[in-house]
Deep mutational scan, measured.
Amino acid sequence: RGFLEKAAVKKMAKAIMADPNKADEVYKKWADKGYTLTQMSNFLKSKTAGKYDRVYNGYVIHLD
């Protein structure tokens, strides 16, 4: 289950990176699912340092 969630989160993160207008909708879905910042950090780990920082930081702001 965790692997599928991670894959889904990364897919949506890539969608945000391609079209930032989708961010609020995606952040709301993640918040509704109760994803914590720790979970998001783990889901968005990448071999490329900083690749998903913008998405993660946007989610931090959304939760605030």
Rank of each mutant, 00 (worst) to 15 (best):
V9Y: 02
W30N: 01
D64N: 14
A15L: 12
V55P: 01
I61N: 12
W30S: 00
K51G: 05
D64V: 13
K28R: 13
K45T: 12
T48P: 15
Y56Q: 03
K28P: 04
K10S: 04
Q39W: 04
K47T: 14
D24Q: 12
K51L: 11
M40C: 03
A13N: 01
G58M: 04
F3T: 07
L44P: 01
A7P: 04
K10N: 04
G58F: 03
L37N: 04
K29I: 15
H62P: 01
H62C: 05
M12R: 04
S46M: 04
P20Y: 08
L37M: 06
A15E: 14
K14P: 01
V9W: 01
A15R: 09
K10W: 06
S41H: 13
V26A: 06
D53K: 04
M12T: 04
S41Y: 12
D32E: 14
H62V: 05
K14G: 07
K29F: 14
G2C: 15
N57S: 09
A13F: 03
N21S: 14
I61Y: 08
N57P: 02
T36C: 06
A8V: 11
A18D: 11
K10R: 14
K47C: 12
S46V: 07
I61W: 08
E25G: 08
K6V: 12
K10G: 03
A31N: 06
E25D: 11
T38L: 12
A49K: 13
Y35I: 07
W30I: 00
V60P: 01
D32K: 11
G50R: 06
A23D: 02
K28V: 06
S46T: 08
K33W: 15
I16F: 01
R1Q: 11
S46A: 07
N42S: 10
E25I: 06
A31P: 00
A8H: 12
K14D: 15
P20F: 07
M40I: 15
S46W: 05
K47H: 10
R54Q: 15
Y27T: 00
W30F: 03
K47M: 07
K28E: 07
L4W: 14
G34W: 03
D24N: 10
A8P: 03
T36N: 09
S46K: 05
